[in-house]
C-alpha cells in the first residue's frame, strides 16, 4: 500500500463520512431558507390553522382584520370595555369567524376583556382564577 492509498483510505474516507453527515444535518434548514425566527425581527405574515382555506385567503387579503382601539369596527358600548376588536366585514366571511361557514356562524365580532395575565420570561400561568369578573373562557399564557 502506497502512502497515497493509505492517506485516501484513512483520511479521505472518514472525511467523506463527516461531510455526508454534516450535509444531512444541515439540509433541512437550508431547504427552509431564511425562515423568520421569533423576536422583534419577525416579518412573516400571520397564519391561521383550523380555518377553511377560503377564510384563510380572505384573512390574508385583509391583514388588518384585527384592529386595536375601542372604536374599531364595532360598538364597544354593546360589549363592555375592551381594547381589541375583531372587525366585522359586512357580507363577507370575516363576520363569521375563522370557521363561520361550518355552521353558519353569527354576528359575533367582539372580544370580551378578560384581563391580561402575563408573567415574566419563561413563566407559565393559568388564567381562570385570577380575575373573577372575566367571562367563562380559560387558558394559559406561556412565555419563551
Amino acid at each position: 500500500m502506497s502512502t497515497l492509498e493509505g492517506l485516501l483510505i484513512f483520511a479521505g474516507i472518514p472525511l467523506l463520512i463527516v461531510v455526508a453527515i454534516t450535509v444531512m444535518v444541515m439540509a433541512p434548514s437550508l431547504a427552509k431558507g431564511n425562515q423568520p425566527r421569533s423576536g422583534r425581527n419577525w416579518q412573516a405574515a400571520s397564519e391561521w390553522f383550523g380555518a377553511p382555506r377560503t377564510v384563510r385567503a380572505e384573512a390574508a387579503a385583509n391583514p388588518h382584520q384585527i384592529e386595536s382601539g375601542p372604536g374599531a369596527g364595532y360598538n364597544p358600548a354593546s360589549a363592555g370595555d375592551h381594547d381589541n376588536v375583531v372587525m366585522d366585514e359586512p357580507g363577507g366571511a370575516g363576520d363569521r369567524g375563522p370557521r363561520g361557514d361550518r355552521d353558519g356562524g353569527g354576528d359575533r365580532g367582539v372580544a370580551t376583556d378578560a384581563g391580561a395575565t402575563h408573567t415574566g420570561a419563561h413563566a407559565v400561568r393559568g388564567t381562570s382564577a385570577e380575575d373573577p369578573s372575566r367571562d367563562q373562557t380559560g387558558g394559559a399564557s406561556v412565555r419563551w
Binding site: 375592551h82 359575533r108 372580544a111 376583556d113 378578560a114 373562557t137
Partner: peptide, 11 residues
C-alpha cells in the same frame, strides 16, 4: 392575551 381572546370570540 387580549388579542387571543378577541380571536377566540370570533370563531
Amino acid at each position: 392575551r387580549r388579542t387571543a381572546l378577541a380571536l377566540h370570540s370570533a370563531v
